[in-house]
Structures are given as C-alpha cells and as structure tokens.
Design a protein around this nucleic acid. Structure first.
Length: 836
DNA sequence: CATCCCCGCGCG
DNA sequence: AAAGCGCGCGGGGATG
C-alpha cells in the first residue's frame, strides 16, 4: 500500500478494466443486503468493517446525525463522522446532548475521491439504514447533513434553501423530526484563515437553534391526505350544504388552463373548497363535465366568506375577473404565512410547505402535469384540486399564529394591490413600438454587416471554417485576442475571455469592440423591450400589456416583475423606449419617485446624527464629497473632461458629482471598499483610502451600524428590517448591510402602494390605483382635467409617517407625462413629516 | 428537443 | 479576504 488507505486506494489498485466501471453501480440491489462495493470490500483484508455500524448512542439515542458517506478516516476506522467534518459537527454539540446522539451515513463505503454517491448506491444502502432506524427505538430527530440525506426525505428541496427548518418524516413507520443543516465538508471548504465564513455561521447557528429548541418540539405528526376524502358534490344544493358548515377562512384552489383570466384562451376548469375538515371539489368549465352552477358557487363564497389560498394572487385574479367589480371578501394566504414564518424566499410552494408542515408532499400524492391539465380524467383532477385546498388550509392553521400581524397584513395588501395592477394592465402604442423596432433593426443590420467585413473576423471565419457570431461572447473573445491582438482578461467563473461593456470600453479605437457593443445594445432593445409590446395583442385580447408582479420571492421583499419585466425598461440611455407606454384616453401619466429613499432608510436605521441632519437640512452630501475628493485629487475633473469631452465647468461638476454619488458615497454606505471604488472610478486607491478615512470619521454612526449588522448575522444567522421582518438565508459579503435597507425601503413604498390601492377600491375610483411599481417609483393615471386634485390626495399618502423610527422625512418628486412614459415634466416635490 | 449554466445588461 | 445589494431576460453553448 502507498500512503493512502481505505477502499479508494484499494480500488485504484484494481486492474484498469475493472476501474472503468463505476465502483458502486448497483442494479436494483434493494433486496440484496449489500452492493458490489461491499462485496469488493470484504475481499480486502485491511478493511475490518464491511458495513459501517451505527455509532454513538446506538440503542437509546434520541438524535441521529445522518451524513452522506464515509471519508478517509471513517473508511479506515469503520465509524461515521470521525474525520474533519465529524469533528466540526461535534464541536457544536452541547455536552449535555453528547450521550444521546447516534451517528451514521447514508452510504457505507467511501466513494472515490469523496464524490457524491449515486442514487443507486444510496438505494442499495437504504436497507442498512432501515435496520438502524428499527434499532433506534427512542429516536426523536434526525440532523441531516447536506443534500444527500435530505433527498431521501424531501427530494424536491435544495439544502441551502430548506436548512434550518424542521419537518416530520416517517422512519420505520414512526414519525420523527428531520432537521436539515449544511454539510460540514462544505463548511470546511468555505473556511478561510482568520474569520468565520457565512456558511460556517449558518451551520453553527442552525445547530445552536436545534439544540436550544429540540426539547420543546412537539411530537412530530405525519398527516394522511386521502384523495378519496375529497367530496365531489353533484348539485349546487349539495355543495352549499357542505359550505355552510365550513369554518372560515375557506381555502379555495382553482385549476385553470392559463395563469391569468385575461390571457387569450383562459378557461376556469375546476375549483375546490376546504376548511381542513371538509373538502369539496367541483367542475366549473371543464370540457369533460362543465356545470352551470360551479361559477355561481365560487362567487358566492368569494362575496360572502373570508377565504384563503396558497399564493392568493392567482385565485384573486380569477375571482376579480368574474366578480366584475363586485366586492370580494378579505382573504388569507398560506404562502404569505410561509414567507414570514420560514424567514426566507424559498420553499414556499405548496408541495414544500405541506412537506414541512404535514410531513407529506401533497404534490406527490396525485401526479398531475399542470401544463397538460386536460389530459387527466376529471375525477383525478378534482381530487388533486381538493387535496391542494385541504393542504393549504392545514398548513395555514399550523403557522398563522407564528407570524407578525402587521407584516402579514402588509404582504396581503401587496398581493391585492399587485393583482389589481396586473389586471388593469398598461396601454401600449403598437405604432410607436413598430417604429422603434424598425429603427433598431436597421441599426443592427448595419453593425453586423460592418463587423463581418473586418479583417480579423474574416480571418477567424476562414481559419476555423465557422460563422462568426457577434452575439457570442466566446467568438468575440477569440477574435479580439487571437486576431485582434487585444489582451482581454478572463471572466472570474468560466475562464472565458471577458467581453463585457467595461472591458471593451477600454478599447475605444477597436472597430470590432465598438460594433459588438452597438450590436448588443440593439439586440437587447429589440428582444427585451420592443418585442413584448408587439406580442401583447396576441397574448391579451384587450391589447394591453399585463406584466406580472411577485410579492414573495425576493429576499428583501421588494416586488419583482416578469413577462415582461416592467421594472428594467431603460430610463437613462435610450429612455425613449418608454414612449411605447401611453396613458389611456383623457388621462396623463403621474409618476412619483421617492428621493434618495435608501439613504433616508440608512439614516433611520443607523440614527447617524450627521447623515440625519444633512438629510433634514437638504444638504447635498454628494457635492460635499466631490469637493473633498478634489482637495485630495485636484486633477479629477480634468480627467472626466478628457473622457467625456465636456468643457462646461458646471456640467463637469455635475457629472463628477453623479459618479461620486453612485460609485463612492452609496457604494461605501452599502459596504463597498476602497478597492472596488478605485476600480470603478479609476481614482488611485491611495486617494480613495484617505478620502474614506475622512468619510467614516464623519459617519461614525453608520460605521457602527454596519458592524452591528454583520455581528447580528454572524451570531444569530438573521437579518431584520426596521419593520421587524426577519430573513434567515445564506448571506454573502455585504448582504447583512444591504438587506435591511432595501427591505425597509420596500416596506415603506409597499405600505403607500397598498393604501392607495385600498382607497381606490373603497371609493370605487380607478384613478387612485397604482399602475406601476418600480421599487421607489409608483405611477398612476390621473384624469387630465383633475391632476391637481389627485396630486393632493396621493402625495400625502406616499410621504406619510407610519412608524416611530422614521426620524427623517420621506420625499417624492412628481412628474406628469401628457403623452407617454418618456416625455414628462416636473410637477412638484413633496416632503412628508418625521419623528424628532 | 428540453434544460441548465454562463455571460452580459437593463432597472432600483 | 475581498466584497455594495437586490432582481429578470435573452442568447450561446453544453448536456442528455
């Protein structure tokens, strides 16, 4: 033997042809007590234990630490979790628990080079695991290390998403808790000299929470969800009898042919109601059995009873569509409950939530392909529909008491507001989009044509006998380096040549580099910003664009938008793309932009006296820091002049101020450092360092708050907004600083958006309803003849003081667009109050 | 042909 | 250690 020991080394000594096979590949080995690897192992005398026995508290253990597979030490000594990973884990086990813990791996042989064991290998070893579970009579909880054991119990989940959340599982027919944590080997890999990585603090915090709480956990319970328990009433009267007995909120689940009722071809197929005890499902307009009463019944519930759904935006959009203006009762949302209770933006789907709350994944019970929904028979679909409603209500019951009411209400409000916003849609000008598209297509043709005539491109095509694709970063990188003699840096990840904007802009005289940039500009504008508008009329019979908002899937709980993403339409260069969006006849665009919202929130969070006072006094800190920079580095404006060709002193200062604002002031306030700032601004690092010393000497309160945020995340694994929302994800770098600011800012805007939306519904006035939300920008359509009146209603709501921590005022800048979303003129700056 | 990742880039 | 953060989308290219 050489220095290496164990099975892997033994394997490497096998003749080559035997190595070719995957060492552990096992065909359907579940009945055999063993796999090829074990058989092989037994033939090697130096391996004493052909299968790894349970270790630690093997008989009366209440907790099982379950890892993936043995490493080198485990393999040699035949004991689980004794190597570096095991040592890291054991470090965090409190002394009083040590006698109660058993240790085991899913797979019992060491995979070559510690590779992940294959599903077949895992399956083969599951027989052993079953024996261990039978042996552990007192087992209460499993601490699952990493993704491999997790997949045995929760196949659809990702470990980084579900870690730190307990859920019930059945082992040897007995329910126990499964508590997933990161794999310690992953933590070790992410470790660096001198301080704790975010993976390590997450790992430590998850384990600490487990040992603090496990004794208080209730007995785990796995719920049985029976498809046959779903009642399928035949008549309206029958159905009504069940519903009158249901306790609110009544969970509603709908099956439809399209996501939104205003899409072309949208059809409401079936519906289900449940109160957690009684569950009914019925057809509405399913082609294999439409009912005349289904829709009527659905609307009766929506109009008369408090209801509930999982991701209520979906059900609400259909209810609003059919209610035709009649009021819908308030609702609950089990997904919103999960969003707040799980303190993360992941594992919120009903399948995951039911696994976590009920110990059973409702989506695994009846396999329905929702993209081919009409292929399933009606009864199966109704049962599936009913189980979803049942699971929704049961999950809601489990967690509703765990969530903060005001944060829950805000989330529900944003669901209602965005759903109505989506439903109303945005009028577009097809003629305008067509004109813009024609212009950009010409642009694109010209650059592509010119690029192909360049010598390096022709040589490249000739030598490699391929067609040069200007849209391919790989092609561009190769041509520019090999045939164009440029020395391009590599991308951090894939090691390809970097051809991004910043890099190519360094070669302003290189013709190909310029064509590439021009082509990217044209392609992006055409495909991302013009084509969606032109497709709107085929997707939506009303001809309007209906971008969809999400309220729960962003870490900070900002909104996000898709199909198309209305939140990233150009606003700086080529802002005229926004001309496609026009107000309805007789209306104007009214756009409200919060001024320096995040800086204000940082002032509220840090209570930094200098920052707070400069905001209250409307002192322009960006100009101040530009002036301070010029003190250290007088040539700065000259340098900008050289780059931009700007000669006017005032304009030059304005340009300088804007660069300092985004690349130095905001960058620093969000945790950026001298290296990055120097790189972006091209100001020498030594200058930046001196300036930053002064900067942080000024904003000591902010610096202290930064430290506090990092510390809270390290010690508790949590990040929270001023409104008390908690996030528990894996945060890298400066997220603990950025998250509370972005999240709090989002809350303030969403509060205002919700209030406007509710007022609009209350007063039956569509002009009070927000139509667009872009983080710190809310737009509405005002009647052209009453702009002033609406302005006076809207701006106080936007700048209202809602929390005691608002120690500086909020401001909004109003703009009015008579013809479109591009040509806008100033319509006032409004400042709200604040708490002294 | 579908799915995934990478790259690049628009917004706040 | 070095690091602003948060998104969605389109195209290329590899993979199965």
């Amino acid at each position: 033997m050489d220095g290496r020991r164990g099975f892997a080394a033994a394997f490497e000594q096998l003749p080559r042809h035997e190595q070719q096979q995957t060492p552990f590949a096992v065909p359907a080995a579940t009945e055999r007590l063993g796999c090829d690897a074990c058989a092989l192992k037994a033939t090697w005398p130096q391996i004493t234990s052909p299968r790894m026995p349970l270790s630690g508290a093997t008989v009366d253990g209440t907790i099982l630490c379950l890892a993936e597979a043995p490493g080198e030490e485990e393999d040699e000594y035949g004991e689980a979790l004794i190597g570096p990973s095991g040592q890291l884990l054991r470090q965090y086990i409190p002394a009083k628990f040590q006698q109660q813990i058993a240790y085991q791996n899913i797979v019992r042989c060491r995979p070559t080079n510690n590779r992940t064991p294959t599903p077949d290998e895992q399956k083969a070893c599951s027989v052993y695991l079953q024996q261990d579970f039978i042996q552990l009579m007192q087992l209460k909880a499993i601490i699952g290390l990493g993704g491999v054991p997790l997949r045995q119990f929760f196949p659809s989940a990702a470990i980084t998403r579900v870690r730190g959340l307990k859920f019930p599982v059945l082992v040897a027919d007995k329910p126990v808790w499964y508590y997933p944590v990161l794999h310690p080997a992953y933590v070790l890999r992410s470790q660096r000299e001198g301080f704790e990585s975010s993976a390590e603090s997450v790992f430590r915090n998850d384990l600490t929470a487990f040992f603090e709480e496990v004794r208080g956990w209730p007995r785990p319970e796995v719920i049985r969800l029976q498809p046959t328990s779903v009642i399928l009433p035949k008549t309206l009267e029958q159905a009504r009898q069940y519903i009158t007995k249901m306790k609110p909120p009544i969970a509603i689940d709908l099956e439809t042919s399209e996501l939104r009722p205003y899409q072309r071809g949208a059809e409401l197929l079936t519906a289900a109601f449940s109160d957690g005890k009684t569950t009914i499902a019925f057809s509405i307009n399913h082609p294999r059995g439409p009912t005349l009463w289904g829709l009527k019944l659905l609307l009766e519930v929506a109009h008369e009873r408090r209801w509930l759904a999982h991701n209520a935006a979906f059900e609400l959009s259909w209810l609003l569509h059919y209610a035709k203006g009649q009021a819908i009762k308030p609702f609950d949302d089990s997904m919103a409950v999960a969003r707040l209770a799980y303190e993360r933006e992941t594992v919120l789907d009903l399948g995951s939530m039911s696994q976590i709350e009920l110990g059973v994944n409702v989506k695994e019970l009846l396999k329905i392909d929702t993209t081919q929904i009409l292929r399933h028979d009606l009864t199966t679909l109704l049962q599936y529909n009913g189980l979803d409603a049942l699971a929704c209500r049961l999950c809601w019951n489990r967690r509703i008491d765990d969530v903060d009411p005001s944060n829950y209400q805000r989330l529900l409000g944003s669901i209602a507001a965005t759903t109505r916003m989506e439903q109303m849609g945005l009028p577009v000008s097809v003629e305008c989009a067509e004109g813009l598209k024609a212009h950009w297509l010409t642009q694109q043709r010209n650059t592509r044509h010119a690029a192909r005539r360049l010598l390096p491109v022709r040589q490249y095509e000739q030598d490699l006998a391929v067609e040069f694709k200007i849209t391919s970063p790989v092609d561009v990188g190769r041509v520019l380096t090999t045939y164009g003699n440029l020395d391009l840096p590599r991308t951090p990840k894939g090691g390809q040549y970097a051809t991004d904007d910043m890099t190519l802009a360094k070669y302003p005289k290189n013709a190909l580099a310029n064509y590439v940039l021009a082509d990217r500009e044209a392609s992006k504008i055409i495909s991302t910003y013009l084509e969606p508008t032109l497709e709107a009329s085929s997707l939506y019979p009303d001809g309007m664009l209906h971008p969809q908002y999400t309220t729960m899937f962003v870490a900070t709980q900002r909104l996000s938008s898709r199909s198309p993403n209305i939140q990233n339409y150009p606003s700086r260069k080529h802002a005229d793309i926004r001309k496609q969006f026009v107000p309805p006849r007789g209306c104007v665009f009214a756009k409200f932009d919060y001024g320096q919202l995040e800086a204000r929130v940082l002032a509220m969070a840090s209570q930094d006296p200098v920052l707070c006072q400069s905001i209250i006094d409307k002192f322009d800190i960006h100009t101040h820091w530009l002036d301070r920079l010029l003190e250290y580095y007088p040539r700065y404006l000259e340098r900008i002049a050289k780059q931009t060709g700007e000669l006017d002193e005032t304009k030059l200062r304005k340009q300088g101020r804007n660069i300092i604002k985004s690349d130095l002031v905001f960058n620093s306030l969000y945790g950026g450092g001298a290296t990055g700032i120097s790189e972006r601004t091209q100001i020498p690092k030594s200058v930046i360092e001196k300036l930053l010393e002064e900067f942080w000497g000024t904003y000591t309160g902010v610096r202290h708050w930064h430290k506090q945020q990092r510390a809270e995340y390290r010690y508790h694994g949590t990040i929270r907004t001023l409104s008390g929302r908690v996030w528990r994800g894996i945060a890298d770098g400066n997220a603990p600083i950025n998250y509370p600011i972005q999240g709090t800012a989002a809350d303030l805007v969403i509060d205002a958006m919700n209030e406007l939306a509710e007022l609009s519904v209350q007063q039956g006035d569509p002009y009070l309803h927000p139509r667009l939300q872009i983080h710190d920008d809310i737009s509405l359509f005002f009647p052209a003849d009453s702009v002033d009146r609406y302005m006076e209603i809207v701006h106080p709501i936007l700048t209202k003081v809602r929390y005691d921590w608002q120690c500086v005022p909020l401001t909004v800048e109003a703009k009015i667009g008579e013809v479109d979303w591009y040509e806008m003129h100033d319509a006032g700056m409004y400042e709200g109050g604040y708490n002294e």
